[in-house]
């Protein structure tokens, strides 16, 4: 498995040779640093901790993570399982690792929508907008009467929407720009512009 931490830059389009338009999301992945390698003896499982960015004023607790590795405190710290064994502590991993990869999974936090109604959150149809209708965007009935006498658990109702972890699978890697550390992935990825995402592939 290969994984990197990146930043969503935005969407654009590029053309293939036949003139077809490919919608792409640009992910900026500056060289990731391997902070720590966890192993079975010490930690009970194997993993690789990667970091990216620069933490401006790290407190003592935060700096402690980096002390052993001798790496400058990074803004983002992410743990990966099953990364290649040859990635050693202090290594810088660039987008070049995705050179021969065709498909990747991208994990990020979706845009928060705040307290959203049922129509937006679950795609309810709502009622008629006019012609004397008094039922527009309300939830309507949420259950039965005497039997079972209570609302079933898991009932779809208005509430907080978005800002949750979402993984989009099997996005095609269209292009890689090694000099600028850019990944061009076909289609959309979760999150707002400038949000952090994790790009992985099996």
């Amino acid at each position: 498995m290969i994984g990197l931490i990146g930043k969503k830059i935005g969407m654009t389009r590029i053309f293939d040779e036949s003139g077809e338009t490919i919608p792409v999301t640009v992910v900026y992945a500056e060289p990731n640093i391997v902070i720590q390698k966890k192993n079975k003896e010490n930690d009970g499982y194997e993993a690789c901790v990667m970091g990216v960015g620069e933490k401006k004023r790290p407190n003592k607790v935060y700096s402690g993570i980096f002390k052993a590795s001798g790496v400058k405190p990074t803004k983002i710290v992410q743990e990966f399982r099953e990364l290649p064994q040859e990635w050693e502590k202090g290594n810088q991993i660039t987008v070049k690792v995705f050179e021969k990869i065709t498909n990747v999974d991208v994990t990020g936090y979706s845009k928060g929508r705040g307290f959203a109604g049922g129509m937006k959150r679950y795609g309810w149809k709502g009622g008629p907008a006019a012609h004397g209708s008094k039922f527009h965007r309300r939830p309507g009935s949420i259950g039965t009467s005497k039997i079972p006498g209570h609302i079933l658990k898991g009932r779809n109702l208005p509430g907080r929407m978005g800002n949750c972890k979402i993984t989009i699978r099997n996005l095609k890697v269209v292009k890689i720009d090694e000099t600028k550390n850019l990944l061009f992935l076909r289609g959309a990825i979760p999150g707002a512009t400038n949000s952090w995402v994790v790009v992985k592939c099996k």
């Binding site: 830059i9 935005g10 654009t12 590029i14 640009v26 720009d177 600028k180």
Partner: peptide, 9 residues
């Protein structure tokens, strides 16, 4: 984003 767009041209 604009810089990237220009580089694609």
């Amino acid at each position: 984003m604009g810089i990237i767009d220009n580089s694609l041209q």
